[in-house]
């Protein structure tokens, strides 16, 4: 009886492996192009390069507009981590107040934030740019952190408040009777219980900010604070694009995300699937 089930498993795993290979095709293409000399890119786009041009990486690393790829990566990290921390802090605290407030006030505040999710932020780019330039928040990381905090907090409030509503009030009441202040109750009791949704918010915000191009191009291009997407775009000129350098830069920019995922794989999956136990 074991033989068919083992065969079955083998077949299933083979299928899964084939599917996984399909996902690897873009990475193969990315790696191949990043190692080709400029002349070979259009002549044989998918074939293996005759000569491995590792110099592409060195050149891509030097970056554009005086900002090295390493510096751009650091800028991206600062903006991403700053935004994630700010959104988690603002979102969780606001959602706690909304979820635990009186029904009318709580609903009103909740809808205020939901409107923030619905409105397309592209509409407000021009006035935002003008205001942010006046207060010195264009061309630096802080400006982007402020901007992303504003853009992403509504979604995090939406996620957090749904979760806070499912938390029994007993924990807070027990902490209150135990003599804890409101702030301590939030920090020591409520916030740790929100860990699953905090994981979701962190990944969601992190992905959006790390990958976003539009806002970063508008608010950072040409400045020393430019981030990875803007730096990569620097290789695309008005008349020609150096695709091998673009691909090399993209390959480098994928590394931190991949490393983070490999390190935090267990926690991330737990965060997405877990609840309070």
């Amino acid at each position: 009886m074991n033989r068919p089930s083992a065969l079955n498993t083998f077949g299933r795993e083979l299928g899964a492996l084939a599917l996984a290979l399909l996902w690897c095709v873009p990475f193969y293409y990315l790696a191949i192009v990043s190692l080709k000399p400029m002349s070979e890119i259009f002549a044989d786009p998918v074939g293996f390069p005759d000569q491995l041009a590792f110099a592409n990486y060195a050149e891509a690393w030097r970056g554009t507009m005086g900002v090295s790829l390493g510096q751009a990566m650091l800028n991206s990290l600062i903006v991403t981590i700053g935004s994630v921390v700010a959104v988690i802090a603002l979102g969780s605290a606001s959602a706690y107040v909304i979820a635990r407030n009186g029904r009318r006030m709580g609903t009103l505040l909740f809808f205020f934030f939901v409107i923030g999710i619905i409105l397309p932020h592209q509409l407000s780019v021009v006035p935002l740019y003008s205001v942010m330039r006046q207060i010195g928040l264009v061309g630096n990381q802080l400006g982007l952190i402020v901007l992303y905090s504003g853009l992403m907090t509504p979604m995090s409030v939406f996620l957090y408040s749904g979760f806070v509503r499912t938390l029994p009030a007993d924990y807070e009441e027990a902490a209150e009777v135990d003599g804890a202040s409101r702030g301590r109750i939030f920090l020591k009791v409520i916030f740790p219980l929100l860990a699953p949704v905090t994981g979701t918010v962190a990944v969601m915000v992190g992905m959006v900010v790390w990958n976003d191009f539009f806002i970063q191009l508008i608010f950072l291009s040409g400045s020393p604070a430019q981030t990875l997407p803007v730096a990569v775009y620097g290789f695309v000129g008005e008349f020609s694009a150096r695709w091998n350098l673009v691909f090399a830069a993209v390959f480098v920019s994928v590394v931190p995300i991949l490393a983070f995922y490999l390190l935090a794989q267990k926690q991330l999956i737990k965060g997405f699937t877990g609840g309070i136990k």
Binding site: P168, D170, E173, A174, V177, S181, V189
Partner: peptide, 16 residues
């Protein structure tokens, strides 16, 4: 509640 100096045991214990 925090100023009353009382201690309470809840029905479902409310352990953190």
């Amino acid at each position: 509640a925090r100023d009353r100096d009382v201690a309470m045991v809840f029905q479902n214990y409310a352990l953190y």
